[in-house]
Design a protein around this nucleic acid. Sequence first.
DNA 1: CTACATTTAATGTATGTACACTAAATTTGC
DNA 2: GCAAATTTAGTGTACATACATTAAATGTAG
Lengths: 151, 151
Amino acid sequence: MRLEDEIKQTSFQSEGQKAYLNIVFTSGWLTLRQAAAFRPYGVTLPQFNVLRILRGQHPKPATVALLIDRMLDKTSNASRIVDKLEEKKLVTRTVCPGNRRAVDIRITAAGLDLLRQIDDSGVLVAAQTGMSTLSDSEFQQLNYLLDKIRA
Amino acid sequence: MRLEDEIKQTSFQSEGQKAYLNIVFTSGWLTLRQAAAFRPYGVTLPQFNVLRILRGQHPKPATVALLIDRMLDKTSNASRIVDKLEEKKLVTRTVCPGNRRAVDIRITAAGLDLLRQIDDSGVLVAAQTGMSTLSDSEFQQLNYLLDKIRA
DNA sequence: CTACATTTAATGTATGTACACTAAATTTGC
DNA sequence: GCAAATTTAGTGTACATACATTAAATGTAG
């Protein structure tokens, strides 16, 4: 749907201003759909993303610093997201033996199970059906333009 | 900067998956810059956006429902954003005489002053310098692609 | 006119975001 | 070897987001 109709604004200062609003609005639109898809599994989107990073490391542990490095949202508080996952027994936290400042974070069997369930359900794919309306070359063009904005 | 480098991920399931991450990441990147620009003025980005909607209505009042309709983030809690603005005396809230369920929200002289200050400062333009790296036709292409995703 | 439904805003609760600050462990420079 | 700097997590606080629920005013059907 055209941005103009979504936010009931008919004129914009510039195409750039409109593009800014469009990026932020589309991001929210997509995130809302993703979050809804995960809700039945009892994890939020940031929690899911941390779990996926941990699975990528498995069976090696990750530190909080590594999570921050790989997270989309660098300023989000990885500690507190790990808190929630620990409460749900999806991850474990142990002081790193080699460096007692750091904390080794590992995904548990239950965590791996949950990710497998979500993978199998196709929920992730379904949540991105909004994303299936573009061709591969259009996606590439989009990625090119977004990367260029942050040049 | 390439998304791959920003989030240290070298492979993606598909261009669509990568585009999804790119939209969300770029949105966060832009929002962070905008928020920093407003901080000296003591308002947050959602608060600023509500103020702008109210200026657009001025001198007519707006209701909470109208704010939600025009906001980028429909599920954000307009009531509480108005709370903050009211505390800062940037808006007023009065029960709507014609419909006592509704609340008339108006921007105050101080609110208009603040917006004028922000406009004059060029802060908004400066915050969007990240957005100046694309040509108009590239922005148009970007808008087209984003609208198509939400088709 | 009254009972029920709908509209409108506000509130409650859990989570996440942004940023400053703290505290402990380690590294570095002398 | 020790003092200062740095690294690493965690905490505190303010704000926003997401969604369910409440409460009051209004509309509507009988």
